[in-house]
């Protein structure tokens, strides 16, 4: 499952590169362009953002500030992590509800250049809400039943890109 999603992510970013770079080459080499390049690559970008975020949550890789929680006892850290997971889960539930509404609303709205339904774009947030919700349920279950190791509790320092 995860492997499949990772390949999807790789394919989407590769396709973005091809569309945008292809457009530069066509414009200079052949004085033409791909009319839907801007639009479709943008939609892929939305998917890369939200699909990537779900995979990243699974790795525990989202950027956070751990100066305060780092000083707590393991118990306190567990409590903070559980509260945080619960709040994130609630956010995901709200997101899922709103995303469902927006997706349904945009089924009949079509993008001008490609003719794609905008539901394609909004469903990325729907996927994100549901996918993250599942991961969080799992993580809260493991926290509550004591199955989560202390190592997992300390999120590694992810190399922030900036």
């Amino acid at each position: 499952m995860t492997k499949g999603l990772e390949w999807m992510l790789i394919a989407m970013l590769s396709l973005m590169v091809l569309l945008v770079f292809g457009n530069v080459v066509l414009r200079y080499g052949f004085n033409s362009g791909i009319t839907f390049s801007e639009e479709v690559s943008r939609f892929l970008f939305v998917w890369v953002t939200f699909l990537g975020s779900v995979l990243l949550l699974r790795d525990g890789g989202h950027l956070g500030v751990h100066i305060l929680t780092g000083r707590l006892s393991p118990r306190g850290r567990r409590a903070c992590r559980f509260t945080s997971d619960l709040l994130v889960f609630l956010c995901c539930a709200l997101l899922t509800k709103g995303a469902w509404h927006q997706t349904m609303l945009s089924v009949d709205n079509h993008a001008p250049a490609s003719g794609l339904s905008l539901a394609v774009v909004y469903s990325a947030t729907l996927f994100c809400g549901v996918g993250m919700g599942v991961i969080l349920l799992n993580s809260m279950y493991r926290l509550a039943t004591g199955r989560m190791t202390d190592d997992e509790l300390n999120p590694g320092d992810v190399e922030d890109a900036l």
Binding site: R27, N31, A113
Partner: peptide, 28 residues
């Protein structure tokens, strides 16, 4: 003819400038 022209993404704007021989491209 031959101008690289930014148009809206509207199908009819793109079509019209293609007919005129320009290179229309939608862009934000």
């Amino acid at each position: 003819k031959g101008l690289k022209i930014r148009t809206t993404a509207s199908a009819v704007h793109i079509e019209a400038f293609k007919l005129l021989g320009a290179n229309p491209a939608p862009m934000p």
